[in-house]
Design a protein around this nucleic acid. Sequence first.
DNA 1: AGCAGAAATGGTAGCGCTGTCATACGACCA
DNA 2: TGGTCGTATGACAGCGCTACCATTTCTGCT
Lengths: 333, 333
Amino acid sequence: MGREKPTLTEVARLAGVSEITVSRVVRNKGPIAEKTRERVRNAIQSLGYVPNRAAGTLASAASLFIGVILPSMSNIVFPEVLRGIYAGLGDSGYQPLLGVSDYDMQKEQEIVASLLAWQPMAVVMAGFEHTEATVRMLAESRVRVAELMDIDSQPIDLAVGLSHRRAGYDSVKHLIARGYRRFGYVGHDWDADRRARFRYEGLCAALAESGLRLEAEKRFAGPSSTIAGRETLAALLQQTPDMDVVVFSNDDLAVGGYFHCLSAGIVPRDQLGLFGFNGLDIGQALPVPLSTVRSNRFLIGKVAAERLLENRGRPSGGEIVDTGYEIIPGATA
Amino acid sequence: MGREKPTLTEVARLAGVSEITVSRVVRNKGPIAEKTRERVRNAIQSLGYVPNRAAGTLASAASLFIGVILPSMSNIVFPEVLRGIYAGLGDSGYQPLLGVSDYDMQKEQEIVASLLAWQPMAVVMAGFEHTEATVRMLAESRVRVAELMDIDSQPIDLAVGLSHRRAGYDSVKHLIARGYRRFGYVGHDWDADRRARFRYEGLCAALAESGLRLEAEKRFAGPSSTIAGRETLAALLQQTPDMDVVVFSNDDLAVGGYFHCLSAGIVPRDQLGLFGFNGLDIGQALPVPLSTVRSNRFLIGKVAAERLLENRGRPSGGEIVDTGYEIIPGATA
DNA sequence: AGCAGAAATGGTAGCGCTGTCATACGACCA
DNA sequence: TGGTCGTATGACAGCGCTACCATTTCTGCT
């Protein structure tokens, strides 16, 4: 049976109704008599009809797409945000359309251009750094725009995230309250991950407020990883052995630092405090749970999607949603 | 300037050519005089024209989409496959359209239905277990189908992955060669992850061949996690203390097992061998690298995308691509 | 019975683009 | 000089659906 794909018209013919009625049944929109609905459903079933969304999008100028641009898929943080977005979209019928920018603004721009070709209802991006052209395209296209992860900058339309500056600040206040005084810092590439810099700034501010300063710090180029955390902490300790706590720019690095301590026979907390950021599962699964900050990544994605659905109209002109964070005391600091 | 979105027609008018010529320039298709191309490009630029893919898809009945269905975003394995798919698609112009099935065949079916509405060139799925309706829909739609991760089953069209049965078999042969005799097994939910069962079967076959058998095994319902690995190994050891090696159904669990050993003062390898599967970064970043099997997830995604692009025609009728695996000796077994 | 008003259904005209076929124009050769 | 080919362009129909009005049929009420 080499028949062609059936269209609305065939379904309508088989069910003995007009095309628009079938369309209404398919989209669950408008008043339809139960009997008619039944008849149409049967026709759809028996023909194996699959609606053509391209046609629907064209006719209605509304696509059921929501563009999502993430900087990376290697770091588990972003798949979690994506999970949140799926959760927030629920069964609204909207489909995420995903692009990965590799932390490259130029690439982000190209992705935005290609996503806009699908007439998405909104574009969700992790981060606030865009090329001028990107911002212009988004403005002209009049889609809603959500910028996720941090709320330390002025959003184009909607921002959902947490204040990394405050998180960094509070982390250090927490550590000072626990008696730590000689701070070290291990971080990764700032240019790629601006949020790490915000946390660092908050950290420095808190130290300064207490008349303290970083005894030592080390940053390496390239993405964060457990291995890098391990090696960088080793190097830092060699250079400055007499710290009592090290703050890492995230949990990946902190877990690496923990592994270094294991290898070097350093007892975490008692001999050297370790503090991360994110609250990843792996940190909480260590023999001793990592002291860190929970960043609610799933929630960020979920809330963003929900807000966008809630108000599909025009930009609200700078709404900011704070999803907060929470210090996990753990047992490494 | 509250102008509407410009269309092909406006661009054509401004450039003083016909619509089809603009279309040809945009798609880089057909012979166009350099001078004309220039003129059209300028017009596009000055209007800020963004093509409407929905219209293009409808007119040409070919969408530049490739449907991708993954069972989970929580396990880093699948984002890595997705990265591979992006890499394989390169700048072909094809866009992945992602669905997440949560290891649920019914949900997979719904996702397939909704993806097909976009007339994708192909559908990529991780796994071989589908509902009858799913298979029927895919067959009738005549898109290409790629089934990823394992090659132990007959594919609908294209399979890319490795033989988990052989991987399990070889792992145990390797461990036997290293002198281990008293085997334990820690695994997770089989119904969700059939590949884990294939590895288990290979493992048992290898043991039987050498006149050995599992001394003890423990499986828990639910997804794999580091915590679960830790707890399950603890329980297994309590029940059967005298094993000399434990094979885990994957690295997440094995890392958890490693953490248990740390807490319990068991020296990995010397007192108890630990063996995983996947070759995750985290395993290789431990103070002592995990003994495991590298499963080339990125490559699986990449090769699948490349093969699909290579031959966009009709299904090849059961092509199988073996991306292989590699035993990582590590230092925990 | 008669009528307003709601509920259910249909006719028609595009949405913006591309496939198909036709046409115009040189360049080249005999 | 005329014919042939290849390159460059255009006219037009239509992809499958939905928005926007009708129009018809059913209530419930006086």
